[in-house]
Write a protein that binds this DNA or RNA. Structure first.
Length: 477
RNA sequence: GCCGAGGUGGCAGAAUGGUUAAUGCGACGGACUGCAGAUCCGUUUCCUGGGGGUUCGAUUCCCUCCCUCGGCUCCA
C-alpha cells in the first residue's frame, strides 16, 4: 500500500490515511436522492469519488465503496404527488436513471447502493439507542435529537449553535425542544409510506439513514466519508452526533472529504434554483471523457463554475489534444510491426519518473489537475517519437503508452477504442477517390468527398503520410 | 449576523517562503497543406482582490478590509 495523504475537513489538516483494518478502506458517499434526473453537479461528485476509489485501489487498498440512496424523503414525496406516482416507484425509476448515467460516465467503482427503506430495522434500533442514552426524545409521534446533549456538536463545521439563525431556510417545528434539534423519526402523514415504530407509525428522518447504514455496513468507525460541501452542515454534523452518541465510539470517520460545488453563473447548480444541466444530456452531447476531463481539470475541493457556453467546449478541445496523442501512438503502433530500436535511455528514465510523479500527485490529496498537466507534456514527447515509431521496438512503444494506461486506470481518460472496421472499406474507397481527384487538380470533387465523409461522422486529416481518417467524437461538428 | 470555501493572465485552472508563477483553451506568427483540419515550433515580456505586518526575500505566513459562493437543521 502506497501511503496516501488526504485533507480532512474536521481536523482541517492533510494527513496520512491509516486504514482501521488494512488493507481495507471503508468509503461512504452520501447525497443521492432520486427524485429527478441527475445534473452536472452530481456528476462532479460521482467522478471525484470514483477517482478516489480508483486511486486507492491502484495503490493496493481494498476499498469498499458505499453510496446510499435516499429513496424516501420530503422531495421524493412531493415529486411523487405531483406526478401521481407511488413514491418508492418514483425513486426506483430515477435511481435506474442514475446508475445508467454512472455507467456511461465510467463510474463503476461503487460496490453497493443501499436503499434507506431497506434499513428501517437498523434505523429504529439506532433511534432507540439514542433515546436510551438520553440523546433523543419523542414528541407528537416524532423523535428528535437533542443537540444540546452532544457536546462536540459543531466541531466539523465550526458552527456554534448559539450563532445559528433558526428558520433561515426551513420552518422550525413547534414540537422541538430547541430549534437546533433535528428529526430522527417523522410521524406519519396521510398517504405516505409508513412503518410501525415504538413511537407510532412514521418514516425515517433524513440524517439517520446514513448512520444506520454505515454502522451496519462499515462499522461504528470507518475511514472515509465523502460528500459535497453543502452537506457539511447540518447533515454531516448530524451524522457525527447520531453515530457517536448511539455507539459510544468516536470518531465516526477518520477523514471527512468535501468536494467543491459546481456552480453556474456564480450560483450553485441545484434543482431548487432551477439552473441545472442534465448529466445524461451532457454525456450524450460531449461524451463521458470530456465531462470527466472537465471535472478532473480542477482540484476536487475547489469550486468549479460551469459556463454552458464554453466550459465543455474548452474541455473538448483540450481533451482532444490529450487523447489525440494517445490515439496516434496506438494507431501508429498498430500500423507497423515493432522494429529493433529501444528508446534513448534518458527518455526511458524520464517516463519512469513521470509515472512515479503521477502516483505521487494522486497520493497527495488527489492532485488531478497537475497529473493532467504532466500528461499533456508527455503528449509532446509522443509527438516527437511518432515519426520514428516504425523503428521502435515493442518495449519502447509500451513505455510511450504507459502514461495513457495510467490515465485510463486512474482518471478514466484516454480509453482504447477498438477501431471499428465496420464501413472502413467504404471510407478507404472514398479517400482513394479523393486522392485521385486531388491528383488531377479537381479540388471541387475532392472537397465534396471530404464533406460527405464529414457528414457521415468521419474526420479526414491530411498528413505527411497521406490522408488519415477517424470517427468523430460525440460532439465534434 | 455567525460558520465554511474562494478571489491568480483574454478565459479555465495549478503550484510555491527564493532563478523565467505550471498546464490547457483562445489569439497571433511560422512549418506542413491546393485549401481546411490535425500536428509541430514560436509569441502572448510588467497575471496572485485592497491595505498593513513578519522576513534578506511574500502570491505563499500573520492581521485587517473588500468582493463572490455555500451553509445556518428538507439541497451532491
Amino acid at each position: 500500500m502506497r501511503p496516501v495523504r488526504i485533507y480532512d475537513t474536521r481536523t482541517r489538516e492533510t494527513r496520512r490515511l491509516v486504514p482501521r483494518v488494512p488493507p481495507k478502506v471503508g468509503l461512504f458517499v452520501c447525497g443521492l436522492t432520486p427524485y429527478d434526473d441527475a445534473h452536472l453537479g452530481h456528476g462532479k461528485l460521482a467522478v471525484t469519488f470514483d477517482v478516489v476509489a480508483r486511486t486507492l485501489r491502484r495503490f493496493g487498498y481494498r476499498v469498499f465503496y458505499v453510496q446510499n440512496v435516499t429513496n424516501l424523503d420530503d422531495k421524493v414525496l412531493r415529486r411523487a404527488g405531483e406526478l401521481g406516482l407511488d413514491p418508492l416507484t418514483l425513486s426506483e425509476r430515477y435511481f435506474r436513471g442514475w446508475t445508467g448515467a454512472m455507467e456511461r460516465l465510467g463510474v463503476a467503482s461503487v460496490n453497493y447502493y443501499p436503499f434507506a427503506t431497506d434499513y428501517v430495522p437498523e434505523i429504529l434500533a439506532q433511534i432507540q439507542a439514542l433515546i436510551d442514552r438520553g440523546y433523543a426524545y419523542a414528541a407528537g409521534g416524532s423523535v428528535y435529537y437533542s443537540v444540546a446533549r452532544f457536546a462536540p456538536y459543531g466541531e466539523l463545521s465550526g458552527q456554534r449553535v448559539e450563532a445559528l439563525r433558526p428558520g433561515a431556510r426551513v420552518a422550525v417545528e413547534p414540537e422541538k425542544r430547541a430549534p437546533e434539534d433535528f428529526v430522527l423519526w417523522k410521524a406519519a402523514s396521510p398517504g405516505e409510506p409508513t412503518w410501525e415504530s415504538p413511537w407510532g407509525p412514521g418514516r425515517p428522518g433524513w440524517h439517520i439513514e446514513d448512520t444506520a447504514i454505515t454502522v451496519r455496513l462499515l462499522g461504528a468507525r470507518y475511514d472515509l466519508h465523502g460528500g459535497a460541501t453543502d452537506l457539511k452542515f447540518p447533515h454531516h454534523e448530524a451524522e457525527i452526533a447520531q453515530a457517536e452518541a448511539a455507539t459510544g465510539e468516536a470518531p465516526l470517520v477518520n477523514f471527512w472529504m468535501h468536494a467543491g460545488l459546481l456552480t453556474t453563473q456564480g450560483e450553485k447548480m441545484s434543482k431548487s434554483i432551477g439552473n441545472v444541466s442534465s448529466l445524461s444530456d451532457a454525456i450524450e452531447a460531449w461524451g463521458p471523457e470530456v465531462l470527466r476531463f472537465y471535472y478532473l481539470n480542477a482540484h476536487y475541493r475547489s469550486p468549479l463554475d460551469f459556463d454552458p457556453a464554453r466550459s465543455l467546449e474548452e474541455s473538448r478541445e483540450a481533451y482532444a489534444t490529450l487523447e489525440g496523442a494517445a490515439r496516434r501512438l496506438r494507431e501508429g503502433s498498430q500500423a507497423s510491426p515493432p522494429g529493433e530500436e529501444g528508446l534513448p535511455p534518458a527518455e526511458g528514465r524520464a517516463i519512469e519518473a513521470l509515472l512515479e510523479r503521477l502516483d505521487e500527485l494522486m497520493a497527495d490529496d488527489f492532485r488531478t489537475r497537475e497529473a493532467i498537466a504532466l500528461l499533456f507534456e508527455h503528449g509532446r514527447r509522443v509527438s516527437e517519437f511518432l515519426p520514428k515509431l516504425p523503428a521502435l521496438n515493442a518495449e519502447a512503444r509500451e513505455a510511450l503508452a504507459a502514461p495513457y494506461a495510467w490515465a485510463l486506470e486512474v482518471l478514466g481518460l484516454c480509453p482504447v477504442r477498438p477501431g471499428s472496421a465496420e464501413g472502413a472499406g467504404g471510407v478507404e474507397a472514398a479517400l482513394n477517390a479523393r486522392e485521385r481527384a486531388r491528383g488531377r487538380g479537381d479540388y471541387a470533387e475532392a472537397d465534396r468527398i471530404r464533406s460527405d465523409l464529414n457528414e457521415g461522422g468521419i474526420v479526414v486529416e491530411d498528413g505527411p503520410g497521406g490522408a488519415r481518417w477517424r470517427r468523430a467524437g460525440p460532439s465534434e461538428p
